[in-house]
């Protein structure tokens, strides 16, 4: 068992390395895309910045609090895109027939699809997120404790898992439609956009949806309430862990998709 895991991790790192080596072949494209990724999220930041020039707060959340919120969500999204790009662009794999090749290799399908793409250019977005994050934590007067640092880490890890789950749903649906499904972007890009602000500002219905159905609020709103010191409930700090149920049904759907592919042929 242990040897299996070591071998899988090694193989994944090998995939990452070959992806990075491929990307480095096109230096200009790499730097421009990275810069572009940075600028895209920078513009969103400007949007927030100019709004706060006019208004002092959004539902009594301050500028630095909102920045903290946005940066964590952006970091989660970029990490998921960086590692899970293979699922995000899976329709191409189905259409080009390279998924057939995946099936002729003695490794799990998920590991191979994950390894098929590693999008280093998302580092541009992550740099932007880290800068905002640094500004957010230094200006929002949080009394940092070990538990609060842990909460932020949990948010990032579990949030990445939620986004990755969405990418997997997106890929699994390709087995049936054989094509990309842009409507899924409502949930991925949409979450990134609404996630700029603490999800509590959008009213009860959306908060409920993002708590129970697609658990963004569990990795954003509730734990942040604890970090900001807006609630005494310590268990809010561990809410991100609850969100870990989400990737499970996604994986079930994926399995179902692979099964469908093998019996329908394409």
């Amino acid at each position: 068992m242990e040897r299996k895991i070591v071998s899988r991790v090694r193989l994944y790192l090998h995939y990452v390395s070959i992806n990075v080596r491929s990307a480095m072949q096109y230096k200009t494209s790499f730097f421009l895309t990275t810069f572009g990724q940075f600028m895209v999220s920078f513009q969103v930041f400007l949007g927030i910045y100019f709004m706060f020039l006019r208004f002092k707060s959004v539902k009594d959340f301050t500028y630095s609090e909102v920045l903290l919120c946005f940066s964590v969500m952006l970091l989660e999204f970029s990490l998921a895109e960086m590692f899970g790009r293979g699922f995000d662009s899976f329709s191409g794999m189905i259409r080009s027939g390279s998924f057939d090749q995946v099936l002729t290799r003695p490794r799990g399908e998920i590991l191979q699809v994950l390894g098929s793409k590693f999008e280093l250019t998302r580092i541009g977005r992550m740099i932007q997120a880290v800068i905002m994050f640094a500004y957010g934590i230094t200006h929002c007067n949080v009394d940092w404790t070990v538990l609060k640092v842990l909460t932020i880490l949990l948010m990032i890890v579990c949030g990445t898992a939620v986004f990755a789950g969405l990418f997997i749903i997106y890929a699994a649906l390709c087995f049936f439609t054989l094509d990309g499904l842009e409507f899924m972007n409502i949930f991925t890009d949409g979450a990134r956009e609404t996630g700029k602000y603490p999800l509590g500002v959008y009213g009860k219905k959306l908060l409920l949806f993002t708590t129970v159905v697609i658990p963004y609020a569990l990795v954003q709103y509730y734990p942040l309430l604890y970090v900001w010191g807006r609630t005494d409930k310590v268990w809010y700090a561990f809410m991100p862990l609850l969100a870990l149920w989400f990737p499970l049904p996604c994986l079930v759907l994926w399995r179902f998709g692979v099964h469908h592919y093998k019996s329908s042929g394409s």
Binding site: S7, H14, Y15, I18, R21, S22, Q25, Q101, R105, R107
Partner: peptide
């Protein structure tokens, strides 16, 4: 179809296959 990675030397693809198998 190709199983080789397009942008890297062939030997790199072989090394990857070594780990895959």
């Amino acid at each position: 179809r190709s199983q080789l990675w397009w942008d890297v030397p062939v030997i790199d693809s072989f090394e990857l296959l070594k780990d895959v198998y």
